[in-house]
Design a protein around this nucleic acid. Structure first.
Lengths: 152, 152
DNA sequence: TATTGTTATACTCTATAACTATA
DNA sequence: TATAGTTATAGAGTATAACAATA
């Protein structure tokens, strides 16, 4: 094995860990919200609605097309978890959680926090070491569009 | 904000970084292999085929159903990148890259390594600090089935 | 003319169930 | 009876394009 191969193999191993961790976290999230009767995209939408938000803004936050937000909003409205309220600009509709929706969101937030892998598995000190490394990895040599996927 | 909220917010921020990093890495991978004319699942299959492998084993490695491997193998076979060769146990088929397939795999491997975020953005020292933290995060309080998704 | 949300449609990834050939 | 691969089908998630209303 050449030096180059060794470096690559090490990077692959780290990448595997990283991907494994994120997959674990996503699986946790999925299991948690499924137990509460929500799909993952529905739960992500609900969590994004701490206050009434134009559909376009939610699309930006979830990094998806506006048409997909329409479909998510339809489903949540059918379940009585949100309503569309007209904005000042009359093209805009704000998505606002109903009382039932807020109750569900509180449940989801509590359950998700409870199982949070980063709180369960690392000490405060370890998080303090980890944070700057992740910041460097995440770091910004990238154009903004790389973060928004062109949805904002 | 309560103490609890602060801890949760910090964890959410770390989780966001982690997810962002992995999404960036996946986007890099996707862009790289798309430029070489491959979809992500096809590229993952090719990379898994350093040597001839029973379809069931590839399913295990990629953590997907055997029926999906059939479909991936069909596509790669159509393009002349692999062939099915009968195993000793005559129920088994080995997937083996053709010469063209090996050429593509070498290209993919080189291109992926070249853009590897973990090699581009971190020093050796930083990787030495990062590794044990990721190991603890990934760590094994989890049953083996959580890693295989029931496909092995 | 540009933007918001909607509709209709279609694509990708992936699983399930039933099947066959073999063990 | 159990296992390897195949087929047909279906579902989740999500995008694109054309459109109506409003700015």
């Amino acid at each position: 094995m050449t030096d180059h191969d060794v470096r690559l193999a090490e990077a692959e191993r780290l990448a595997g860990l990283l991907i494994g961790i994120v997959e674990q976290a996503k699986a946790d999230f999925s299991e948690t919200v499924t137990a509460l009767g929500l799909s993952v995209p529905l739960a992500r939408a609900i969590i994004g609605l701490t206050e009434p938000v134009p559909m376009r803004d939610l699309a930006c936050e979830l990094r998806c097309d506006r048409s997909y937000i329409t479909s998510l909003a339809d489903q949540l409205e059918e379940r009585g978890l949100l309503t569309r309220v007209p904005g000042e600009d009359r093209r805009v509709k704000l998505l606002a959680l109903t009382d039932a929706g807020r109750a569900v969101r509180d449940q989801v937030a509590a359950a998700v926090a409870d199982r949070h892998i980063l709180l369960r598995r690392l000490t405060d000190d370890e998080r303090r070491v980890l944070t700057p490394l992740l910041e460097r990895l995440h770091g910004d040599g990238t154009p903004p569009s790389a973060h928004t996927g062109g949805f904002c």
